[in-house]
Design a protein around this nucleic acid. Structure first.
Length: 225
DNA sequence: GCGACAG
DNA sequence: ATCTTGTCGC
């Protein structure tokens, strides 16, 4: 029988507040960047199995250096604001499966653009010590004006008077991404770093590739051999 | 009290 | 997130 999570929401929130204090919003990643990696999570068996994907890329050529998938039984349900407790364990296993840690991690979900400043990308960064950035498709908290239509345009995401991230138009005619610093990445650098690794798709390459591995859909095609 | 609410 | 085909628009 699996160890169920205790259901203590208050305790989980308190832990987030404590961990949020360890987040660094100063650029602390290697320059120049040698490798980067994308992380995402998906579910199988109707949600019983949590599946995490990690894709390591060469920061200069975007060549895929390694792709790993880690599976573990799901321990807790999705609760807005507590996503990292549900998905981080699998993500850490996927990271360990990589031949080497990346200089910078792109995580699907929010960085500090979270009610208590600790979205999954920030939690991942503090837990591993690795520089990280959150790349989400929807806002969790805060608001901002619609960025200009042009690709690469961005506007600040604000909440309670502070800036938590950016609304980034990574692709023409597509809804903006919500980008926020995770750990060891500054607010000023976050959007630029995401655009630097974005090709012709809405999602930056690291996250886009991890997304495809984490979601089930592509093996429906890959299985054909 | 009534919504909103990453994945 | 996941269950799922075709379809409208650029």
């Amino acid at each position: 029988m699996e160890e169920e999570w205790d259901g203590d929401v208050a305790a989980a929130r308190a832990l987030q507040e404590a961990l949020a204090e360890k987040v660094s919003l100063r650029d602390g990643y290697a320059k120049p960047l040698r490798t980067i990696a994308g992380f995402d999570v998906g579910f199988e068996d109707g949600g019983d199995t949590t599946r995490a994907a990690a894709v390591l890329l060469d920061a200069d050529t975007l060549e895929v250096l390694a792709s790993e998938i880690a599976r573990i039984p799901t321990r807790m349900p999705y609760i807005p604001g507590l996503l990292s407790f549900r998905e981080l364990p699998a993500l850490l296993l996927a990271l360990e499966a990589l031949p080497q840690a990346p200089d910078l991690a792109f995580v699907d979900g929010h960085g500090i653009a979270h009610p208590r400043g600790l979205g999954i990308a920030a939690h991942f960064g503090v837990a591993t010590g690795l520089p990280s950035i959150g790349v989400a498709k929807k806002i969790l908290v805060g608001s901002g004006s619609e960025p200009h239509e042009l690709r690469g345009a961005y506007t600040p995401l604000r909440h309670k008077g502070a800036q938590l991230g950016w609304l980034l138009r990574s692709k023409l005619r597509c809804n903006p991404l919500v980008v926020s610093p995770g750990h060891r990445v500054s607010m000023a650098s976050a959007a630029d770093l995401v655009m630097r690794f974005t090709g012709s798709y809405r999602l930056p390459e690291p996250t886009r590739l991890a997304d495809r591995l984490a979601s089930r859909r592509d093996e429906k095609h890959a299985a054909r051999h």
